[in-house]
Design a protein around this nucleic acid. Structure first.
Length: 527
RNA sequence: CGCGGGGUGGAGCAGUUGGUAGCUCGCCAGGCUCAUAACCUGGAGGUCAGUGGUUCAAGUCCAUUCCCCGCAACCA
């Protein structure tokens, strides 16, 4: 692996004009787990997330509140970045599409593509709903030919706009996706995109909005009558931040220099291309079709993998603010703790399919898997070591070494394949095995028989060592808990490197600390 | 015929390249007492939606039918 280039991960950037919800939290935590695993493997990591701030809805809401759009965005940016912090995300940068560094890159790209003949200007005649501020298509017509009253008054309108030629890109994109089976994950999404590309003719993408209709956007550098369409603007964030951190490959491509980003100082990182771009299934088309075409036109290498995750429902119904069928991540974290939340969303579903949140499911996983499983194992292991050996780690012993190593390897492979749920299932096999081991060896009985002292030492070593290894392999998922385990083990290092998961790293004679419940048990009946 | 995803013991889910159907919860019985009234063992419970096919062998491949759920341009 090329160690000079960082593993580059991105999430979709969130549209600020909304409120952070479970879906946003899930995507961030999922990406965070992948990022932490990459770090754990010893790679430099660059993890980007951020917000998308342009567009009609922001402009409207700002107007309603008598604020400038930017002042309104400044307010929201705080809310969103606090949300990221609350989730324990280890991102290296936070992009806002209103930042000059981003706008510079968007302008550079627009200029380049314009000069190279990828755009053309054309008038569009269509039926426009002023109420919804959108053009309607034939598909929006009701069976009787009229438009739904929800669109208000619909008028026929002629509007000029710039378009990005996509037609010529359709064929190579199909071939690219077919010859790079890892490009879109999971496979079902890849098939969906291929199906679409093969069946439908790609229509040229409108990349502007007239200023008269929408002013809150990045001005088109070669025509002041227009601003850039939000999606064209938003997708570029992945590249603009690489440029802003001095990625020479991108700078050169866009004819920019590090001096164009004075706020960055002298930093020069190798970031591009992204290794993982994590998105929701709703925006597959933008990332699997428009985005590669944009990159091809720009001449930039493609992202390695697009990770498409599913959506959450609650109680098998679509989450919706209007019906109150929602999950507030902040409230859950405040009540149950960050790691319980992170664990649940990653354990509940594999990456790809939709998930279903239920409060009782969450509580059960907390109680059974975290409190009674992981928490109790660490607690009883450390407690016995303290009680029988004054907390001093006995001589090394390899009784469970093989079993543990197999599980650790399987877990590693699952992480590598982005099978996070699978990784957690395997990790819990180790927890069950360790609890079973306690029962089989009964250290509490050995402790009463002086002639069994050595056997007791062996058992205790195996238990404590497993607790330590668990911390290492769980760190990408539940970093706070992993660090707590290390701290209870009296270790002053961090469980953030996979190489720490090798058996036998706990040295005899080391003194551990007293255990504290990692996940305090709850009396669920009282709720 | 719009696209996609699903239908596996009471509930929620795993099932990699086809080879005796697993897990968690719940239920019943037993064991243990180090531990967060936690832990361990055993048991009951499924014709893997239906039908047809390929195969020595299919939940796992093919065909078809039924049912559920998302998506269909800015909502992760």
């Amino acid at each position: 692996m090329d160690m000079s280039k960082s593993i580059y991960l991105t999430t979709a950037i969130d549209y600020v004009n909304g409120h952070p919800h479970l879906g946003h939290a899930y995507e961030k935590i999922l990406t965070d787990a992948i990022a932490r695993f990459a770090h754990s493997c010893g790679n430099p990591v660059f993890f980007l997330t951020g917000v998308d701030e342009h567009g009609q809805k922001v402009q409207q809401t700002a107007e309603k509140r008598a604020l400038s759009p930017l002042a309104y965005c400044d307010e929201l940016a705080v809310v969103w970045s606090q949300f990221i912090e609350k989730l324990g995300i280890c991102n290296n940068d936070y992009v806002r599409t209103t930042q000059p560094r981003h706008q510079k890159v968007v302008s550079a790209i627009l200029n380049k593509l314009y000069k190279e003949g990828h755009f053309y200007k054309e008038s569009y005649r269509g039926f426009y709903s002023a109420k919804e501020e959108t053009f309607l298509t034939e598909k929006d017509r009701l069976p009787d030919g009229s438009f739904d009253p929800m669109y208000g008054e619909v008028t026929e309108l002629i509007e000029d706009n710039y378009y990005f030629k996509l037609g010529e890109h359709q064929q190579w994109l199909i071939e690219y996706i077919e010859s790079h089976p890892d490009f879109i994950y999971p496979e079902s999404r890849k098939n969906e995109v291929l199906g679409f590309l093969k069946k439908e003719k790609l229509e040229d993408l409108c990349i502007t909005r007239p200023v008269s209709r929408l002013s809150w956007g990045i001005p088109l550098p070669f025509d002041s009558e227009f601003v850039t369409y939000v999606w064209f603007d938003a997708l570029i964030n992945y590249m603009s931040i690489a440029a802003a951190h001095g990625d020479l490959q991108i700078l050169k491509l866009l004819d920019l220099t590090p001096e164009d980003f004075p706020e960055n100082g002298q930093e020069q990182m190798e970031i591009w291309p992204p290794d993982f771009q994590v998105i929701g299934k709703d925006i597959v088309k933008f990332h699997a079709v428009y985005w590669p075409i944009m990159l091809k036109a720009i001449g930039a290498p493609f992202p390695k993998r697009l990770i498409v995750h599913g959506w959450w429902q609650k109680n098998n119904q679509k989450m919706s603010k209007s019906t109150g069928n929602t999950v507030d991540p902040i409230a859950v974290i405040n009540e149950w703790g960050l790691d319980a939340f992170r664990y649940y969303v990653l354990r509940e579903l594999e990456v790809g399919p939709d998930g279903n949140w239920t409060d009782s499911g969450f509580e059960t996983r907390y109680q059974v898997e975290l409190a009674n499983g992981l928490g109790n194992l660490v607690n009883r292991s450390l407690s016995m070591l303290n009680r029988y050996r004054d907390g001093i780690v006995p001589a090394k012993n390899d009784e469970l070494k093989n079993e543990t190593e197999i599980i650790v390897q399987n877990t590693f492979k699952s992480y590598q394949d982005i099978k996070i749920q699978g990784a957690l299932i395997k990790i819990w096999e180790l927890i069950y095995r360790a609890n079973q081991y306690v029962d089989q060896t009964a250290p509490f009985k050995l402790a009463k028989q002086p002639e069994q002292a050595q056997r007791l030492d062996e058992v205790l070593y195996n238990l404590v060592e497993i607790c330590r290894i668990l911390a290492v392999i769980l760190w990408p998922i539940i970093p706070e808990t992993a660090e707590k385990i290390y701290s209870q083990l009296g270790l002053n290092t961090q469980p953030d490197l996979w190489s720490e998961s090798f058996w036998g790293k706990l040295t005899p004679g080391h003194k551990v600390n007293k255990p504290m419940p990692l996940f305090p048990r709850r009396d669920l009946n009282k709720k």
